[in-house]
Write a protein that binds this DNA or RNA. Structure first.
Lengths: 212, 212
DNA sequence: ATAAATCTGTTGCACAAGCAACGAAAGAAA
DNA sequence: TTTCTTTCGTTGCTTGTGCAACAGATTTAT
């Protein structure tokens, strides 16, 4: 995935942040950064630490939407779409330092000659587009009716990514179930059936697909 | 939804197309415009007619992904993401005239003084972002386990859009089922049960939610 | 090392929803 | 009008998967 500041060096970031009048804020572990419905008009850059985005279901279920790590940004789509209301809770997973960069500053040419502005805009477009494709893939998966189909699509994705017979998945079973939109124990059951039928093999998070 | 040329007048479009060296092509009804895996590096503007994007399932199921009408563009996300391979079939639903606009031309500042370039870039970012949010909403819906929940989320969406007790939905039952990721007859069954339980009411495509 | 907590697999049960097949209603065509 | 086509509702049957509850395994904390 392309990041907003890809291809821009650390020292140049400083220049950009100044040019953008970016606001620096620090948060302690578990502190709330944003709440649902809160107004937001900035892309947020994680300079240090790690934050998590959590969806609070009506039913009280808390689902981790995403984890944003050092050097990454988030909220691009929300602020660029003009909605400008935070759809989820955002917590600090660790102590964290963030930069809030007003989106208007990014979208409008800077008065000073700002060399990296063009690159930044292109990164913005590219990263949102990539996210878009990712979401499309997930929708395709979620519209499959059988759990087995979903599992196979999921595994195939990580097989291609690792490009190896044996590959690692980055999720726990619970997370995987969440991604596939199914019940954890049902997932566990189906995985074991597939293993018994010699369709796949796995040990912990190492998987392989046994096609003939 | 924001369109790529929102806020840009017809006569100015001409200027832009020239500035971009856009390629004009015409297609007859049912002609194939793009095939899966085909290389693509242009955003496509539908100047006349109407085209449809169709996903060809391994199983042979054909699913209409989207319909693009006169004045709209498509393929933004694919070409901006750098994938640059068409993921689906694209057909002409009617006779159609299209403009192919190379994405590099859009992303890079024009040598000539092109007044609308900035606006165009901002539209691009906004429209992809909006699409992004739309996809997120759909994912949220698709991860609901019960059909009833999905129906209610779906209806609520169109209720808010129409902002009226009685509102229209833009899908046939088959399309609605496809959007919800469920079986059509199961959808029909559940809708009627909900009507019997006085949770909702509907006649053809007019719906209302009977909350107390 | 021991205890506590978390993660993963296992199983029985219930039921929501898939599927197929058909008929009624509505709309289009002749 | 009549006929054909498409859409929608209806129903019986079947099954995949949700859910709950527990057990074993693994990891983390004390």
């Amino acid at each position: 995935m392309t990041k907003l500041f890809d291809g821009i060096e650390e020292k140049d970031k400083e220049t950009l942040f100044k040019c953008f009048n970016a606001v620096k804020k620090s948060f302690f572990k578990d502190e709330i950064i944003l709440e649902p419905e809160q107004k937001i008009d900035s892309v947020i850059y994680v300079s240090n630490g790690c934050i998590k985005i959590i969806k609070d279901d009506f039913d009280g279920n808390k689902i981790i939407i995403d984890t944003i790590k050092k050097g990454e940004t988030f909220a691009e789509a929300v602020v660029c779409s003009g909605i400008k209301k935070c759809p989820n809770f955002v917590y600090a997973q660790t102590d964290a330092t963030l930069y809030f960069i007003n989106i208007e500053k990014i979208l409008n040419p800077c008065t000073e000659a700002c060399l990296f502005h063009k690159k930044l805009l292109q990164n913005l477009v590219k990263s949102i587009s990539e996210k878009n494709l990712f979401l499309n893939q997930r929708i395709e998966l979620l519209t499959k009716k059988s759990l087995r189909e979903r599992i196979l699509i999921y595994l195939d994705k990580y097989k291609q990514k690792n490009n190896n017979k044996i590959f690692e998945i980055p999720h726990s079973r619970e997370e995987m179930a969440q991604y596939l939109g199914v019940n954890r124990s049902a997932l566990s059951r189906e995985l074991c059936i597939m293993k018994a039928q010699k369709l796949i093999d796995f040990h912990k998070n190492s998987f392989s697909i046994l096609t003939n």
